[in-house]
Design a binder for these strands. Sequence first.
DNA 1: CTACAAAACTTATTTATACAAGTCAATGAT
DNA 2: ATCATTGACTTGTATAAATAAGTTTTGTAG
Lengths: 245, 245
Amino acid sequence: MRGVKFDTIFFELKQKIESGEFPFHSLFPSESVLTARYGCARNTVRRALAMLIDAGYIQAQQGKRVRVIYKPVEKKEFKMGGIESFKEAAERNHFVGTTRVVKLSEIVADEKIAELTDFEIGDELFEVHRVRCIDGKPLIFDINYFLKSVVKDLTEEIALKSIYEYLESQLGIVIVTSKRRMTTELATDLDKKYLELGEYNCLAVISGRVFDSDGVQFEYTQSRHRPDYFCFEDTATRKKSYMLR
Amino acid sequence: MRGVKFDTIFFELKQKIESGEFPFHSLFPSESVLTARYGCARNTVRRALAMLIDAGYIQAQQGKRVRVIYKPVEKKEFKMGGIESFKEAAERNHFVGTTRVVKLSEIVADEKIAELTDFEIGDELFEVHRVRCIDGKPLIFDINYFLKSVVKDLTEEIALKSIYEYLESQLGIVIVTSKRRMTTELATDLDKKYLELGEYNCLAVISGRVFDSDGVQFEYTQSRHRPDYFCFEDTATRKKSYMLR
DNA sequence: CTACAAAACTTATTTATACAAGTCAATGAT
DNA sequence: ATCATTGACTTGTATAAATAAGTTTTGTAG
């Protein structure tokens, strides 16, 4: 077997749901059936099921059978997902993405930058501004700040391709967690300069703080999206409401 | 013990992190230590840890110790969480929330409504428009559609309080899953009428489809937020990127 | 002092088992 | 026919244990 077991089971079941083998609103096979079918322990099946629940494909309730709640949707919008780069997201959405680097400089964090990015005053940073185009249209204005002590060197050539790829494959930095915040903000002069906003005077902004394997925040990112073409999806369950208290 | 074990462990550890007993960037106790401390099986501790990871409080990597990445933030914005009602969210954010019902009518879904809400053409629905105020300021315009066959009766009195409370306690409807989608949209005439938008011509919109325990979608909701005071947070991990493939 | 290997940790996956708790349908007494 | 009970399912929680895989420290040989 290629990967880990629960992952392959999850992936297989996910595909079967997407293909219509388990249609919307139908009852899903019970845990005992799946356990027998995959020849594994019940916990392994349960883990794959938990992932399907998290992805919003099925829903479970004690005593009752599991129900499929996945409905296929045509994707016309540009959907953002987990910790993925623009490049990955563009490919997943079947779009051709191109990038233009409009700024790359080294700065020292002042109070304003520190407040925004969660870095300390005095930290040496790379500041990168990039315009992301999809099918030729400029849709995203990306602002990145990287901690220089972690990301030693950053050239325009790297920024043009994928900075994440550079970090992971060249520097061996392992990206573990990313805390993101979604807001709607008024367009700045830079936004108006680089994006064709039309009648919109706001943008959908995803701000993210990215941590490496040592728990060091080494990046702050703002992805400023033109409102059309932007869409962020999420599945909430009663289970997850633990974090609210 | 009050609730289930892994939940109480999660809650206790979460509070200890928030109180500063395990400060930002410090190393978390290992699984074996926690297992001994709580006198339970390792899996139970691991489950609580998984919840802390999901909530963005800690980060784990194989072989390495677990690191705390929680940083306290002052909450000035109105933060939305899981499947919680406006009432719950307002209380959690320490705001006083009031509600005004500006529309409550029975309609039949036409093609346009069906397309928007995922209901079928011809479905009988309740349509509810409500203006949510926080500290007196009208910040949210809520549009709800409820399936009449599930939500038999809906009065203005109920809409004024909490519809969810009515559904759960009176009708015994168990809300299991909610699929949400976040977008930024141009303000409509209704938005301008009910909210004081100022210079903004857009809103942050959370659209949600809510399913009951039989997997029936019985509600479609749009929460249209004035951009200031709106903030949605999320933690992404490499683990969760399973759903992207 | 350095380099390498081994040991002693860590977290991650998987299995197996037991019991708890909820749902649902069949059974049977009233 | 109606209602309560039972029993056979379901999913949920908890324990124990073995193995895998990664990181860090330790110890030793050179």
